[in-house]
């Protein structure tokens, strides 16, 4: 192992952050958000490695909207046998087809805040990366949220890694992002290096899809959908996640595809494309 292997450096940095936060706070205050996606798979591996040979001493939590892909639920069942996983679903049970934007606000943002309050978690780990979206480029590794989980970009601590201020007070909660300095490509290279299992939807296969007005293709369970060879770069709720045409059937293919891709992964997420700066607004409301 060389000191200049960036993936190894990123791994050590992430493990360092996980350990520092965990050994300076009460473990029962800590939760790791688990979305079933690739970043969550990487986070899980990093937690395993941070605590090995002991078991991971903190809980994981999935905010379920009820509208995830079937393969995602199957994958979650498998993972749930390895970790202490809480599944929380907002009782409103809104529907992405008829409730539009309110669906995301309630089933994702509201649900996340309710779950944190319900279980009294004060520190939540998330798998967000700075390269995902412009407002995230300014996010700290340890981000302070107020009592109502809101993000105020101006009230953040100055941060000099690896000197982290891991204090959490009665009036604040923390979001911790150990993958801050990773890119989408790093995630896949790490998955390959560590041989991490991910949801099969990331690999190209003939699937039924439906074209939206915006030109985006989404997966459908409707038998009338066209059959195309597609894969998913990101996984969300199935009507809100776009598929891409692809022949990438394995990790090497995916890495090669990403290296030549002309688009970022966010293009496949409906949630970011509502308004300019919409991710920032969602973060201010309490989203990751």
């Amino acid at each position: 192992m060389t000191k200049h292997n960036p993936i190894k450096q990123l791994e050590l940095q992430a493990i360092d952050i996980i350990r520092e936060v965990c050994c300076t706070n009460k473990l029962e205050d800590i939760v790791v958000f688990y979305s079933i996606g690739k970043d969550s798979s990487v986070m899980l591996r990093l937690f395993e490695k941070a605590f090995f040979p002991q078991k991971i001493p903190v809980k994981f939590m999935h905010i379920d909207t009820g509208w995830k892909f079937k393969e995602m639920y199957e994958f979650r069942e498998k993972i749930a046998q390895k970790i202490d996983l809480i599944v929380y679903k907002h009782p409103a049970n809104l529907n992405p087809f008829t409730d539009g934007r309110r669906y995301t606000d309630v089933m994702k943002t509201e649900a996340l805040k309710n779950a944190l309050d319900l279980y009294k978690f004060k520190i939540a780990f998330g798998g967000s990366r700075r390269d995902e979206e412009k407002s995230r480029a300014k996010e700290r590794i340890i981000s302070i949220r107020d009592k109502k989980h809101r993000w105020n970009p101006r009230a953040q601590n100055p941060e000099i890694p690896p000197l982290y201020n891991t204090f959490c007070t009665a009036s604040t909660s923390l979001r911790v992002f150990p993958l801050s300095n990773w890119t989408e490509l790093d995630i896949w290279e790490y998955i390959k290096m560590e041989n991490i299992e991910v949801v099969p939807l990331y690999f190209a296969k003939e699937r039924r899809v439906q074209k939206l007005e915006s030109g985006m293709y989404i997966a459908t369970e409707n038998e009338t959908g066209e059959l195309k060879k597609v894969r998913f770069r990101t996984l969300g709720c199935y009507p809100l996640t776009g598929a891409i045409f692809s022949d990438a059937e394995n990790l090497d293919d995916i890495i090669a595809e990403l290296e030549s891709s002309q688009y970022t992964e966010r293009i496949t997420r409906v949630i970011d494309y509502d308004t300019d700066g919409s991710m920032e607004i969602k973060k201010k409301e309490g989203y990751f």
Partner: peptide
């Protein structure tokens, strides 16, 4: 290509 936050823009 850079300036992210709404205030900053």
């Amino acid at each position: 290509l850079l300036d992210g936050l709404l205030d900053e823009r």
